[in-house]
Each structure stands twice: as C-alpha cells, then as structure tokens.
Computed example of a mutant assay.
Amino acid sequence: MAFRAFRAHSVSQGSSMAERITEEPLPSTKTAQSTVTCIYQANIAGFWRNVTVLWWKNLMNHSLHISIDSVGGDFHYNCKIDVKPWNFWGKKGYKSFDVDGHHVEVYWDLQSAKFSSGPEPSSDYYVALVSKEEVAFLLGDYSKKA
C-alpha cells in the first residue's frame, strides 16, 4: 500500500499509512457546526488521485464525505457516510462506487471512535478505500481491524 503527499505531515490519528496534503479547519467560533477537510493522494484504480476527506459535525450528527478525483481532475466521485449517534447502523459499514469505470469500496468502523471537540475522530476508528482488491487508502488507528 502506498500513499503520497505534497507536504509531509503525519496524520494526527496515529496512522503511518497516509499523510495529509492540507488541513483546513474552519475558524474556531461558537457555532453549532464545524468541518475539517483533509486532502490526500492515493493510488486508486491504477492512478494517483486526490482523495478529499471532509468530516462534518452539527448538533445532531457526524458525517464523513469522501471525494476522489478523476484522472484529469475535472470530475469527482463522491461517497457520503452519516454517523448518527442514536443509530447503530451508520457507525460501521460498507459502500461501493465506480471511479473511472473501476470498482472502489469504502469500509468504515466508527463504533468505538472517540471524538474531541471537533468533527474528526481522534482514535479508535478506521476508514479504508479498497481498489483492485487492495487497501489503497487507510485512515485511523484501527489498521489491524481494517
């Protein structure tokens, strides 16, 4: 499994498998909603692509939005995961979609995830992208569980 980053900055969750390209949290204010956007590069469907991960939180739920760029970068393939605190089903799961005609799967386990004040989990979780039957991208500190 290989990842590239424009800027070497280790992922704060302890994963040594992916590195952030950028991190753009919104200014710290007392609002009911917050987001964190991280951009990575991963080899998905045979090409290095930007993978944008958006963690979003409001008073009612947490969401995870993953966007993968097409080869030319002019199109984005999207996957949205809602993690509602009162529903068990959204905290662990699987989705699949096509990226430039190639099957990509997203697996996640946020059942035990610990969140601080922000929308991004701080520990005890994983989010994995699988392409060509290999883990192409992995976030979180539960890599063995993934």
Score class of each variant (00 low, 15 high):
Leu26Met: 13
Arg4Gly: 07
Ala42Thr: 05
Ser116Asp: 15
Ser96Gln: 14
Ala146Thr: 01
Tyr126Arg: 06
Asn50Val: 04
Asn78Val: 13
Pro25Gln: 02
Gln111Ala: 10
Ser12Pro: 00
Gly101Asp: 15
Ala113Ile: 05
His65Thr: 08
Ser116Arg: 11
Gly73Cys: 07
Lys145Pro: 04
Lys91Cys: 05
Asp74Ser: 13
Lys144Arg: 15
Val36Leu: 06
Phe3Pro: 01
Ser123Ala: 12
Tyr77Glu: 01
Cys38Val: 02
Gly101Gln: 14
Thr29His: 06
Lys80Asn: 13
Ser10Gly: 01
Cys38Lys: 06
Thr29Cys: 04
Glu105Pro: 07
Thr52Met: 11
Thr52Ala: 12
Arg49Leu: 08
Asp74Met: 04
Asp82Glu: 15
Ala128Met: 06
Tyr107Met: 03
Gly140Leu: 05
Ile68Trp: 01
Trp56Leu: 04
Phe88Gln: 13
Ser117Ala: 14
Glu134Thr: 09
Lys84Thr: 12
Glu23Ser: 08
Trp86Thr: 12
Trp48Asp: 11
Gly46Ile: 08
Thr22Asn: 13
Thr22Arg: 11
Ala146Glu: 04
Ile68Asp: 00
Ala146His: 02
Asp124Ala: 02
Lys92Glu: 03
Lys95Glu: 09
Ser70Gln: 06
Pro119Arg: 02
Lys80Ala: 11
Tyr107Asn: 10
Gln33Met: 11
Gly93Asp: 08
